[in-house]
């Protein structure tokens, strides 16, 4: 059993304790995000919120979805879709003067 566990940990890169650690970090960031609603972050508000969102997103994708440990092809496919989506929709919104 123990040998099997180690091989699986190698294969998938994380132990259960590791997953719990990631979840705790995610929970902490979420708490920080919610706090922006109550505490005035001033000019840092938007960038801070965006960075926290991106960090959470990437952590779930990399660790819970194993992209960090898996074949690069999966990352390519997923991030291709993601970046394409961000690209085309941001350009489309820009033509509505959304960002100005």
């Amino acid at each position: 059993m123990s040998t099997e566990t180690t091989t699986h940990t190698e294969e998938h890169g994380m132990s259960n304790a590791g997953y719990v650690r990631i979840a705790l970090i995610l929970a902490a960031i979420t708490a920080l995000e919610v706090s922006t609603y109550y505490v005035d972050f001033g000019r840092l508000f938007m960038p801070a919120l965006m960075i926290m969102m991106v960090v959470k997103f990437i952590m779930v994708v990399s660790y819970f979805m194993h992209l960090k440990f898996d074949n690069k092809l999966f990352s390519w496919i997923f991030y291709a879709g993601l970046i394409l989506a961000i690209g085309v929709y941001c350009v489309a919104l820009a033509t509505f003067h959304f960002f100005s």
């Binding site: 496919i77 997923f78 993601l82 961000i86 085309v88």
Partner: peptide, 15 residues
């Protein structure tokens, strides 16, 4: 592989 392709596609749906 099929699943990741589907998820890549879903990015554009939710986007």
């Amino acid at each position: 592989l099929g699943m990741w392709l589907f998820l890549g596609s879903e990015c554009l749906l939710f986007g």
